[in-house]
Design a protein around this nucleic acid. Structure first.
Length: 352
DNA sequence: AAGTCGGGGCG
DNA sequence: CGCCCAGACTT
């Protein structure tokens, strides 16, 4: 698919929506929170579902609704009471958000959930996804609700190769769902996509049972296992360093790395692990035995290696004496990219 | 953009 | 048992 093309033609969109709804009506699980169009119950069930599987969350949901059957009851309860009914679910800040949202709805909306996306998103704990879920399921508005399930289903249908964490990928999926909303009742469509993602289009999907198989590009291309794409592993450890740009006139102090290890033999700035500038400066002074004057913070540099990430806080310092370790800015030896960027920060400052 | 929340699924 | 994970908020 090229830029500028519509994400999906209306005919495909209509067939997808139709197949989904037909499948949903025949296969959807009978879940208690689906028996109501009450935005309050949908809100509570969505907030609980964001952190647990249905099976785990159901007993909590039943207990919660039995104790707080409507939004006024929740708003008037104490936070401790709310937390005790959330206890075990985790993400306890969400319990607080749910409670705060109930109080706000009662205080400023007369106990009625707002019906617009923006007003919903203004409530604590409600972001893009939950706002879309409430608007479409409770109020039957054609609003996309993009969660992990929906992303998985539709990136596969589209054979979308971009990582799902990118906002551009979410925007594409959002457009497709918006298109499908023209061809199905929003409240069913939203639940149908999520249900398909939960039952069929799972991590290792059951493509034989999938109503979208004939339209699924990832299936056709044999790329089910590689889609959705995860962002390139940013699991590499993040290491914080303080790097010092020590200048004497227009020369900068550099040290040469050992001939083994990371950036072997390249020159670089003195840099000290950690993020505490005071400690790092003390360590620097004892390492160098030069008279230094601490300067300003020049900025932050991040640098990604294949196996680790650096975050450099770049500090300027000046030295009275200029030794052989100082190199003129217009005649620098080979320096790693991160430290070169750090030196560039100093040059920018000087040129202003 | 990246860290945090905290439990469950899964290998 | 360790690794990974989804959404909202925060910084």
């Amino acid at each position: 698919m090229k830029d500028g093309d519509p994400t999906m033609d209306a005919q495909t969109s209509k067939q997808l929506a139709h197949n989904l709804i037909t499948w949903y009506r025949a296969n959807a699980r009978d879940l208690p929170f689906r028996h109501s169009r009450d935005p309050y119950r949908i809100f509570i069930s969505e907030m609980m579902l964001q952190q647990t599987q249905v099976a785990t969350m159901l007993p909590y949901y039943e207990r919660f609704i039995a104790r707080f059957p409507d939004i006024e009851t929740l708003a008037q309860a104490s936070l401790d009471d709310v937390l005790s009914h959330w206890q075990g679910l985790g993400y306890y800040r969400r319990a607080k958000h749910v409670h705060e949202a109930a109080k706000q709805v009662c205080a400023t909306h007369g106990g009625q959930f707002p019906t617009t996306l923006d007003a919903l998103k203004a409530l604590p704990g409600i972001g893009d996804y939950t706002a879309g879920a409430i608007a479409s399921i409770a109020f039957n508005q054609p609003e996309p609700a993009i969660d992990g399930n929906v992303l998985r289903v539709l990136t596969r249908v589209l054979a979308e190769a971009r990582p799902i964490a990118l906002s551009a990928t979410k925007a594409t999926v959002k457009d497709v769902v918006r298109g499908m909303h023209h061809h199905a009742p929003p409240r069913e469509l939203t639940q149908a996509i999520m249900e398909l993602g939960a039952l069929v289009c799972v991590r290792t999907p059951i493509c034989e049972a999938c109503p979208l198989q004939r339209h699924c590009l990832a299936y056709a291309q044999g790329r089910i296992a590689e889609i959705p794409m995860r962002a390139p592993r940013l699991k590499q450890p993040l290491e914080h360093y303080i790097a010092f740009v020590i200048t004497g006139g227009d020369a900068v102090y550099l040290e040469q790395n050992p001939d083994k290890g990371l950036l072997a033999n390249l020159y670089g700035l003195p840099h000290i692990i950690g993020s505490d500038v005071t400690k790092a400066y003390t360590a620097l002074q004892s390492n160098l035995s030069m008279a230094l004057t601490l300067g300003e913070t020049l900025g932050e540099i991040t640098h990604v290696f294949s196996h680790k990430r650096w975050r450099l806080t770049v500090i300027h310092a000046t030295s009275g004496q200029v030794t052989e370790n100082f190199h003129a800015l217009d005649d620098l030896p080979a320096i790693g990219k991160a430290h070169r960027k750090a030196i560039a920060l100093w040059e920018e400052k000087m040129n202003k």
